[in-house]
Amino acid sequence: MSDLPVKVIHVESGKILTGTDAPKAGQLEAWLEMNPGYEVAPR
């Protein structure tokens, strides 16, 4: 599992989470399930 943060964006508000606020790569799927409305942000 990776500890690198994955940049995500809230589709409706446009809020972007990066760095320490962003979910870790190894926890991404579970985090997205618990935080509806967020998607992986385009690079």
Rank of each mutant, 00 (worst) to 15 (best):
L32T: 01
L28C: 02
L28Q: 04
Q27K: 09
A41C: 12
P42W: 02
D21M: 12
Q27I: 02
L32W: 00
R43E: 14
N35T: 06
A22L: 06
M1D: 15
R43T: 13
V6N: 09
L28T: 05
A30N: 12
P23F: 00
G37A: 05
P42H: 14
E29C: 03
V11G: 09
Y38D: 03
A22V: 11
H10N: 11
V11T: 12
P5V: 12
Y38Q: 02
R43G: 13
W31I: 06
K15N: 11
Q27V: 09
E39M: 12
I9G: 09
A41R: 07
M1V: 06
G26M: 08
V8G: 09
E33F: 02
G26T: 12
E12S: 10
Y38W: 13
V6E: 09
K7Q: 11
V11E: 08
K7E: 15
A22F: 05
K24A: 13
R43M: 12
P36F: 00
E12G: 09
V6D: 10
E39I: 11
D21G: 07
H10F: 00
L28R: 04
G26C: 09
L32S: 04
Y38H: 03
P5G: 14
A41S: 09
H10I: 00
G37C: 01
V6Q: 10
E39C: 08
E29Y: 03
L4C: 14
V40C: 07
L4G: 02
D3R: 02
L4V: 05
P36L: 01
D3Y: 03
M1K: 08
M34S: 12
V6S: 09
E39P: 00
V6T: 13
Q27P: 00
W31F: 07
E29A: 12
P42Q: 13
M34F: 05
E29S: 10
E33G: 08
T20V: 11
I9E: 08
V8Q: 09
Q27M: 10
V11D: 05
G37V: 00
K24G: 06
L28H: 03
L32E: 05
L28V: 10
E12V: 06
N35E: 01
Q27G: 10
I9S: 05
D21S: 08
G26A: 10
H10S: 06
V11M: 14
M34W: 02
R43L: 12
N35V: 00
R43W: 04
L4T: 15
E29T: 07
N35K: 01
A22Y: 02
L32V: 05
H10W: 00
E33H: 11
D3I: 01
V11P: 10
G26F: 12
K7H: 09
P42A: 11
S2E: 15
P23C: 01
H10D: 04
A41G: 04
I9R: 13
D3G: 02
K7V: 12
E33C: 05
E33S: 08
P42C: 10
H10K: 06
D3S: 07
L28A: 05
P36Y: 04
L32Y: 02
D21R: 08
V8L: 09
G37P: 02
G37E: 06
G37T: 03
P36H: 02
M34L: 12
A30T: 09
L4I: 15
K7S: 14
E29P: 10
V6C: 03
P5T: 15
S2W: 08
P23V: 03
V8A: 07
V40I: 09
A41I: 11
I9L: 05
E39G: 04
K7W: 03
V40Y: 07
D21L: 11
V8P: 08
M34A: 13
K7P: 15
P36R: 03
E12D: 10
S2K: 15
L28D: 07
V6H: 12
A41H: 07
L32N: 03
P23E: 02
V8C: 03
R43V: 14
Y38T: 04
I9F: 03
S2A: 01
I9Q: 07
E33K: 15
D3T: 05
R43A: 13
R43I: 12
P36D: 07
N35M: 13
M1T: 15
V6L: 11
A30Y: 06
I9W: 10
K24S: 08
H10C: 09
L32F: 03
P42F: 02
D3L: 01
W31H: 08
A30L: 07
E12C: 04
V8Y: 03
E39K: 09
M1Y: 14
V11H: 04
A30S: 11
V40Q: 08
E33I: 06
M34V: 09
W31P: 07
V40P: 07
E39Q: 13
M1Q: 03
I9K: 12
V8T: 04
S2C: 09
M34C: 12
V8E: 10
G37M: 10
I9D: 08
L28K: 08
K7F: 06
V8F: 08
A30V: 06
V40W: 02
L28P: 06
Q27L: 04
A22I: 09
G37Y: 02
E12I: 10
R43N: 13
H10A: 03
P42L: 04
E29G: 10
Q27S: 09
L28I: 11
M1R: 02
L28N: 05
V6M: 13
N35Y: 04
K7C: 13
L28E: 08
W31R: 09
M34N: 14
L32G: 05
A41F: 12
M34K: 14
Q27T: 15
V6P: 07
S2G: 14
V6W: 05
W31G: 11
G37Q: 08
E12A: 13
A41P: 04
P23L: 00
A22W: 03
D3K: 05
E12P: 12
L4S: 14
L28Y: 08
D21K: 08
E39S: 08
V11Q: 03
I9T: 12
A30W: 06
P42E: 14
A30E: 14
G26Q: 11
A30Q: 14
G37S: 04
D21E: 14
H10R: 01
A22G: 08
W31N: 11
A41Q: 08
Y38E: 04
L4P: 11
E39D: 07
W31E: 11
E12Y: 00
K24L: 06
V40E: 09
S2R: 14
E29V: 04
P5L: 06
E33Q: 12
V6F: 06
P5E: 15
G26K: 12
V40G: 04
P23A: 00
L4A: 05
P42D: 15
K7R: 12
D3W: 01
E29R: 09
I9M: 11
L32I: 03
A41Y: 13
P23Q: 00
P36I: 02
L32K: 10
A41N: 03
W31S: 08
A22C: 10
E39N: 15
V11N: 10
P36T: 08
P36Q: 03
L28W: 00
H10V: 00
